[in-house]
């Protein structure tokens, strides 16, 4: 498939197939993806007596984007190993990036109700303004892109869908629970803070918290946050493009 119109059709068809049709048979998919972020939000707000509400809202939105990645990972492994759907796709004009992008976009459909809930809180708390909207959109898109690329890369190596049940919580722990996504980095002991900067979500959270007025990072620091976040995303997308196994060796 060489022309871009064909690619777009292909992309939209995959998005519709994996993002809209399943909801018709099981509407609870829409609620499922909300479960973890809302649980964290609830727990953190209760435990901090509302003090960490902004961090919990920002963190919840980042966790939702990471959940997209783990969903891509599970769907792809299931489709490849159990249904042989990926083999059907490989032996067709559908290109690997279109397949991944379609699945990743379809996961966004599931995230819409959750994002809606968080955006309502965002607006109700008075954090919404043009600048914060831009930052939020950019950070969430980048988080969605790197999480999906990571999910795709891992999925092409898994031999069984049960392996994703092992990796998904680990990824979630490493990228959203341990780094300062749900809490300010200042809550970490100083000796642990450098470690937090190994996670791209630390930079994402820093930018979102800044957009919410939680001690916005200085201009230089914000620039570095964007740079690192973009670099992580590009690296993972390139890794997905080169290392992921579309055709088996």
């Amino acid at each position: 498939m060489s022309d871009s119109r064909h690619r777009l059709r292909s992309l939209l068809a995959i998005t519709y197939l994996n993002g809209v049709v399943p909801i018709r048979t099981q509407p609870l998919y829409l609620v499922n993806i909300l479960a973890s972020p809302l649980s964290f939000l609830f727990f953190i707000v209760i435990a901090s007596h509302g003090v960490f509400l902004p961090e919990a809202v920002g963190g919840g939105m980042i966790l939702m984007m990471l959940s997209m990645g783990t969903s891509v990972q599970t769907d792809m492994t299931h489709y490849r190993q159990d249904l042989k759907f990926q083999d059907v796709m490989v032996a067709s004009p559908i290109e690997a990036p279109i397949y991944v992008a379609g699945l990743a976009l379809s996961e966004l459909v599931y995230a819409l109700p959750g994002l809606f809930v968080f955006l309502l809180i965002w607006i109700a708390e008075g954090w919404a303004n043009p600048q914060s909207a831009l930052v939020l959109t950019g950070v969430l898109l980048l988080s969605w892109a790197f999480a999906s690329a990571l999910g795709f890369t891992l999925a092409t190596y898994f031999e069984d869908v049960r392996e994703t049940f092992v990796f998904s919580p680990l990824i979630s722990l490493a990228l959203s629970v341990l780094p300062p996504v749900y809490y300010p980095i200042t809550a970490l002991p100083a000796m642990w803070r450098p470690l937090a900067y190994l996670s791209p979500t630390t930079y994402a959270a820093d930018l979102i918290h800044g957009a919410m007025g939680l001690g916005a990072p200085p201009l230089l620091a914000a620039g570095i946050d964007w740079l690192v976040l973009i670099a992580f995303t590009v690296a993972l997308v390139v890794l997905a493009a080169y290392k992921a196994r579309w055709r088996e060796p």
Partner: peptide
């Protein structure tokens, strides 16, 4: 080319029409 792999199964949430129609759409 097009392929029906060994032991492949259609995506369970599709109906017969969608299975064929969406496959063709995915092919462009």
């Amino acid at each position: 080319i097009a392929c029906v792999p060994q032991e492949s199964r259609p995506l369970y949430f599709l109906n017969v029409w969608e299975l064929v129609y969406l496959y063709l759409k995915m092919r462009g």
